[in-house]
């Protein structure tokens, strides 16, 4: 009885300590988000009064900012474009980075290490250097002003990243598993596809998530390659069409950020377990 209570007390204390430790982090991370959420529902006059409390409605909340977003911009198209672009980018990344990661991690190719470093180094080349030459490439392929241009260029930063990621994953798969597959009569490709790949699913999923998030972080390429209103992805469309001359549509801007950011956060959180599991548990499965 007595020991039970102390255990419970101990447990409570531990929880309190953890929560206390987490509070600042949650505040830092969430405070701006909360404030964006409130702002998205505020009337414009509510924003421009110094006496007003920024965390609550001083005038009745409004949906006007969202109606601007959906009826006066191509926001619906932007969301679809963003999703489609990210999906294509993820697909291209998987088709290239997964085999490459495997080859670099497992097949002990002559020069593999240097090739790996070289691929990694391409991640170092800043977009600011590349966007002008790339605009030539984009135009030559007839992709200018279409979101396909972004499907073409985004893998330039997702491939290096995900190749490295996959390299790490493949190295955690025990060599015996492949050997066993060989004994069972699989070829090299068969061993890769039927044995190594299935246990690396969490890694593959992680790559997909990264391809998605990285695709949503670009601004410069989108700005340079895609100008028609209905072809832009969200991260380009919002800053380019909700800032007019010297007027910012704050409420709509923040509403847009949250409408795309929050679902991704949920997805992300869902896959996070798999990501961690991918590194730790995937091996012993």
């Amino acid at each position: 009885m007595a020991t039970q209570r102390t255990t419970r007390q101990k447990e409570t204390r531990r929880h309190l300590l953890i929560y206390a430790g987490l509070t600042p982090f949650v505040l830092i991370a969430v405070f701006p988000i909360y404030w964006m959420l409130i702002t998205a529902f505020k009337q414009e006059p509510d924003l421009y009064r110094m006496g007003n409390i920024p965390f609550w409605f001083n005038l009745p909340p409004t949906l006007k900012n969202f109606s601007i977003l959906f009826y006066q911009t191509h926001f619906g198209d932007w969301i679809i474009n963003t999703m489609t672009i990210s999906a294509w980018v993820a697909l291209i990344t998987l088709l290239t980075a997964v085999p490459a990661g495997y080859a670099l991690a497992r097949l002990r190719l002559p020069g593999a290490e240097n090739i790996g470093i070289a691929i990694f180094m391409t991640y170092l080349v800043p977009g600011i250097i590349l966007f002008l030459p790339l605009s030539r490439v984009v135009a030559t392929l007839g992709l200018q002003d279409s979101w396909w241009a972004l499907v073409l260029v985004y893998p330039t930063f997702t491939i290096p990243f995900c190749t490295w990621l996959m390299m790490g994953f493949f190295k955690t798969v025990p060599m015996e598993m492949e050997e066993a597959a060989r004994v069972d009569g699989c070829g090299q490709l068969g061993a890769f596809l039927r044995v190594v790949l299935p246990v690396s699913v969490p890694g593959v999923l992680t790559s997909v998530i990264f391809a998605f998030t990285l695709s949503m972080q670009d601004f410069l390429y989108g700005l340079a390659f895609v100008s028609p209103g209905d072809q832009k992805p969200v991260p380009v469309g919002v800053p380019t069409e909700l800032i007019r001359g010297d007027v910012y549509f704050w409420g709509s801007l923040m509403g847009a950020a949250l409408l795309v950011g929050l679902p991704v956060a949920v997805l992300y959180n869902f896959f996070l377990d798999r990501f961690i599991q991918g590194i730790t548990g995937g091996v012993v499965k």
Partner: peptide
């Protein structure tokens, strides 16, 4: 954008 269109020769 103008620099990009110039470099591309299209737009």
């Amino acid at each position: 954008r103008m620099a990009a269109e110039f470099a591309a020769g299209a737009g």
